[in-house]
């Protein structure tokens, strides 16, 4: 994964064309709706958010392995910050600081070569990191000689690291694989399309609620529609991973379709339990960073291990 590779990669070029085409299409549709006198203020805000986010994401991937891992690390750190601010863990600088440090250490572990095998990314340490980080977090109350309310802080810090740090950062570790551009571009694209499809199908056909006590806006129709779209996408974008067998394409579609929506629902019940609407206000028209990347958190690690299981480290 590097600039040279990206310039000569037909995969990168194709995604550039697809995403550019879709953005243009959406822009034309929104523009004509607006000319027709419809109120499109809210989708237009979301659209502007995309116009800023997509070049940043594509630009980071274009710059190669190091930029991608750094980008994912920063996203994980900001995502954890939003979680910490939402739950109130942010007031505890020890806990927050240790999770920040652990997230950046995980970024470094993804970057350095394996000391024994020499392959990019220290896989063994990456996968074993929860042992050390959980141990470290559990030590904090002992070092500070405190007990009151510490269980809640420890639990939140561990969840914050494992879920928003470790699980999400499998996405960055994918940059170490031989087919990194295909995997990463497909995942980011497919997960976002899955989100959009769930929303659109829900709007058009949605009647029965999917999980009304968690997220009243999600419907069964939206969910089924999104899974259907996600099952089709790997076939259309087969060029991203030409070595995949048809069975793997089905599996990939399921991981994106089901995993994406699970990630969404997890953030939904976290928000609902806390009693907030959005995790933050970082991206105009989209809420916080977590409201945008939530679907990726389930998909990234499961897809990563699927690839590794069927295709080895390459």
């Amino acid at each position: 994964m590097s600039i040279d590779f990206a310039i000569n990669s037909p995969v990168f070029l194709r995604y550039l064309l697809i995403v550019g085409g879709l953005l243009l299409f959406a822009g034309v549709v929104l523009g004509s709706l607006r000319l027709a006198g419809r109120n499109v203020a809210s989708p237009l805000r979301t659209y502007r958010g995309w116009l800023i986010m997509i070049p940043i994401v594509l630009g980071t991937l274009f710059l190669g392995r190091e930029a991608t891992i750094l980008g994912v690390t920063l996203l994980a750190a900001v995502g954890f910050k939003e979680f910490a601010r939402a739950t109130g863990l942010y007031e505890d600088w020890w806990m927050t600081g240790i999770v920040y440090l652990a997230i950046f250490a995980l970024g470094a572990v993804s970057l350095v070569p394996d000391p024994r095998l020499g392959s990019p990314g220290w896989y063994g340490f990456f996968m074993a990191s929860p042992v050390f980080v959980i141990a470290l977090i559990l030590l904090v109350p002992i070092v500070r000689n405190r007990s009151r309310g510490e269980l809640q802080k420890v639990a939140l810090a561990i969840l914050g690291f494992i879920y928003f740090g470790w699980m999400f950062m499998h996405l960055g570790f994918l940059a170490n694989t031989g087919n990194a551009y295909g995997y990463l571009l497909f995942l980011v694209f497919a997960v976002e399309i899955n989100d959009v499809a769930a929303f659109t199908f829900g709007r058009m056909f949605g009647k029965r609620k999917l999980r009304e006590r968690i997220s009243p806006n999600k419907t069964l129709a939206g969910s089924v529609g999104a899974i259907a779209i996600s099952l089709v996408l790997p076939w259309l974008l087969w060029f991203s991973f030409p070595h995949f067998s048809p069975a793997l394409l089905v599996l990939t579609g399921l991981i994106v379709g089901v995993g994406g929506q699970l990630g969404d629902l997890v953030i939904s019940y976290i928000k609902r339990d806390i009693g907030i609407k959005d995790m933050g206000a970082t991206i105009h028209g989209h809420g916080g960073i977590l409201d945008r990347v939530d679907s990726m958190i389930f998909v990234a690690p499961i897809f990563f291990h699927m690839v590794r299981w069927f295709n080895g480290a390459g």
């Binding site: 601010r85 939402a86 007031e91 600081g97 339990d273 009693g275 995790m279 206000a281």
Partner: peptide, 27 residues
């Protein structure tokens, strides 16, 4: 159930929270 204490400025965009005062301490 646990009690959460979300930061007061959680819905404030960055551009606005920079102008706000008192400021939330950030690491």
């Amino acid at each position: 159930t646990w009690k959460y204490h979300p930061s007061p400025g959680i819905d404030t965009p960055v551009s606005e929270s920079l102008r706000g005062f008192p400021r939330e301490p950030g690491m």
